[in-house]
Design a protein around this nucleic acid. Structure first.
Lengths: 136, 136
DNA sequence: ATTCGTGCAAACCGTTTGCAAGGGA
DNA sequence: TCCCTTGCAAACGGTTTGCACGAAT
């Protein structure tokens, strides 16, 4: 994803294009492994040592709010971020802290269809379904 | 769950039975809403003001390690604990921080069976499947 | 005697916040 | 001018850690 694409992505969300925001998105880009803030900060500081930690947190928060990225929940109590906004699931291996994306629209549809047929859930409008596959 | 049941549960896991551990399990018991440490601490301090915060964290950690309870991941960066060890799923409402348990063995089996048929996943031994249903 | 569990308090560290300054519309 | 964004540093707060004491085996 080039800088141009990033810029238009930001504009589409009503966000101003700044070097810091571009740097954050670039750091997230091409990471299919859900980096935490620390990783992002380090990666950015390589090319852009003057960017400040608070700013990065702020940017990440606004991105989450504007749904440019998503938070991911793992065992450790640190924020992790997922640049992929398409519906997808996660595979977690029990003895490592890696989180691998798993795309399977058929599975998503299968589960959603099943849930739609459940009367206990009839008062809930299901927005999405996230499946964690725990392997060993 | 009585004190006696709690005691034998601890013994089965090779854990010594202490008043503090009983207090923690009692505080967790009957909570199907995934309390965080703060809630647990407050609840315990009512009857047992002398118990210490560090101890409660220690106990929760050992319980997780011995699989007496499980951690739950939510948006806020605080530990939450789930006293229910049976396979189950979670319903999360987008505009509240509540997590509701959802039991559905049929759904679990449906997904597991589906995944077993996937060749991409053939090198993974699936231990369990956790589904988060996000509603609005 | 050794191991395990607890209480206490300090330390830790990831994250948040306040504020002043810069920059674009 | 006004509003948004950044940098910096201090503060925050949930969690962890170190240590000494006590209990149990």
């Amino acid at each position: 994803m080039g800088v141009k694409d990033i810029a238009s992505k930001l504009k589409n969300k009503g966000l101003k294009v700044t070097p810091q925001r571009i740097a954050v998105l670039e750091a997230l880009d091409g990471n299919n492994s859900h980096p935490n803030a620390e990783f992002i900060i380090k990666k950015i500081k390589n090319n852009n040592p003057s960017i400040s930690v608070g700013t990065i947190y702020n940017i990440l928060d606004t991105f989450v709010e504007k749904e440019v990225i998503a938070k991911v929940h793992t065992d450790d109590n640190v924020m992790r971020y997922d640049p992929l906004m398409q519906d997808h699931h996660h595979i977690l291996m029990k003895d490592s802290d890696k989180v691998v994306d798993y795309f399977d629209d058929e599975l998503t549809a299968l589960v959603k269809d099943y849930l739609r047929g459940k009367k206990e859930l009839s008062d809930i409008e299901i927005e999405s379904v996230k499946i964690n596959i725990i392997g060993k």
